[in-house]
Computed example of a mutant assay.
Amino acid sequence: MTLATTITIIAIAFIISALLALPLIPMLRRLKFGQSIREEGPQAHQKKAGTPTMGGIIFILSIVVTALALGWMNGLLTTQTVVLLLVLAGFGLIGFLDDFIKVVLKRNLGLTSLQKLIGQIVIAVVSYLLLRLGPFETTVGLPFTSFEIDLGPFYVLFLIFWLVGFSNAVNLTDGLDGLVAGTSSIAFAAFGVLGLVYGQEDLSLVAFSVTGALLGFLLFNANPAKIFMGDTGSLALGGILAMLSVLMKQELLLLLVGIVFVIETLSVILQVISFKTTGKRIFKMSPIHHHFELSGWSEWKVVIVFWTAALAAALIAVLPEVI
């Protein structure tokens, strides 16, 4: 895959996202598909109430169209690309149902945690079975080393944990305008480059499609956001990102590439453990991006710092493989 092809993939996905957003945002506003803001969240966020949500539909459609069209044209439609798009659509559907129940049916809790978990497990298992139809390694390797361990039949349990964990990690991170769209576009670009290095052009095609689609969405999601991705987008992104790391056999490298998502999740876990065991909170509010907001940082400053951290982590992960 040449540099020109890579740029073309990103550009096409970018344009499709931007064009889809133009009519969809006012349509969602007319339908009153607006985001409700938690009262216990930062007070500065109350002004965002009513901003159209479920915008993940925009980049999901862009990714699917770009990957299928260019994959077919370039002979890159493989079982792996199909599985990636299946995870994207499946996790996106779970998020869409959750958003629909909360926004349209006005039931604040949306899908229950158990309902979402069952849906995520089903998608993970179906993906695993599809992959096992062909040659599929059940090993997990330690990044930057030759050490690896074969999980054998237990790999399916790891896959479930990985997809569920990262889909929810990205979902937790989605609390500031442009935060997830920016950090995710960096992560997918990193895996796109790794795919080229490893000769997995089919995976690079999907990764760069996601990058372009997210950048197109970011035009409307950056502060002040005109649309939010909702669970529709965040669950889909986390699921496909985790699956991408699995197919590249760089599962644990995702802990570095997705360091922002990992830290956000750890901040929530630590906050809960601390409060339940000592009655005290470690952070002013979790996830940790809210802690910085309540410490006096502007929303833009938090987002830029987190984007920078994501970029630094991606470079650390990719450069040893490229050089």
Rank of each mutant, 00 (worst) to 15 (best):
228 F>R: 10
225 A>Q: 10
262 V>A: 05
285 M>I: 03
225 A>K: 09
219 L>G: 05
236 A>Y: 00
294 L>W: 09
270 L>E: 12
274 S>E: 01
267 S>M: 10
226 K>P: 10
211 T>L: 13
253 L>V: 12
239 G>C: 07
293 E>I: 07
215 L>Y: 02
210 V>H: 11
282 I>A: 01
273 I>A: 14
276 K>D: 00
260 V>W: 06
225 A>P: 06
246 V>R: 06
233 G>K: 05
222 A>L: 14
252 L>G: 08
265 T>S: 15
250 Q>F: 08
234 S>I: 01
291 H>C: 13
250 Q>Y: 06
270 L>S: 09
239 G>Y: 02
260 V>K: 03
266 L>V: 05
221 N>S: 12
295 S>L: 14
294 L>G: 02
246 V>S: 09
235 L>W: 03
270 L>N: 11
254 L>S: 01
226 K>T: 02
263 I>P: 08
279 G>R: 08
214 L>M: 12
248 M>L: 15
221 N>W: 10
286 S>W: 11
227 I>G: 02
231 D>P: 03
244 L>Y: 14
297 W>E: 15
218 L>Q: 04
265 T>V: 06
296 G>S: 09
221 N>A: 11
219 L>C: 10
231 D>I: 06
230 G>E: 00
211 T>P: 15
270 L>M: 14
273 I>G: 04
269 I>S: 06
280 K>P: 01
214 L>S: 07
280 K>M: 08
257 V>H: 00
238 G>C: 07
259 I>E: 07
248 M>Q: 15
287 P>S: 13
237 L>S: 06
245 S>M: 14
243 M>I: 05
246 V>G: 11
266 L>M: 13
241 L>K: 13
240 I>S: 03
237 L>W: 07
278 T>S: 04
276 K>Q: 02
230 G>V: 06
289 H>Q: 14
262 V>P: 07
261 F>P: 04
251 E>G: 06
283 F>S: 11
255 L>R: 01
230 G>L: 04
213 A>C: 08
241 L>M: 15
237 L>C: 08
216 G>E: 08
282 I>F: 00
212 G>S: 08
260 V>Y: 02
261 F>N: 02
232 T>H: 06
280 K>E: 14
292 F>V: 12
237 L>R: 04
246 V>T: 13
265 T>I: 03
245 S>F: 15
246 V>A: 06
274 S>I: 00
233 G>W: 04
265 T>D: 11
282 I>P: 01
275 F>I: 00
283 F>T: 07
219 L>H: 08
257 V>R: 01
257 V>D: 03
225 A>R: 09
224 P>Q: 13
296 G>Y: 12
246 V>M: 09
276 K>W: 01
284 K>Y: 15
212 G>C: 09
212 G>V: 04
295 S>Y: 06
232 T>L: 10
246 V>C: 09
228 F>E: 02
253 L>G: 06
241 L>E: 10
266 L>H: 09
264 E>W: 02
226 K>I: 02
221 N>Y: 11
246 V>W: 10
279 G>D: 05
274 S>W: 00
283 F>H: 11
225 A>C: 07
221 N>M: 11
233 G>I: 08
247 L>S: 03
283 F>N: 10
283 F>M: 12
269 I>A: 12
290 H>D: 12
278 T>Q: 01
266 L>Y: 12
247 L>G: 04
225 A>D: 09
232 T>K: 04
241 L>Q: 13
230 G>T: 09
280 K>R: 15
297 W>C: 13
236 A>D: 05
227 I>A: 02
257 V>I: 13
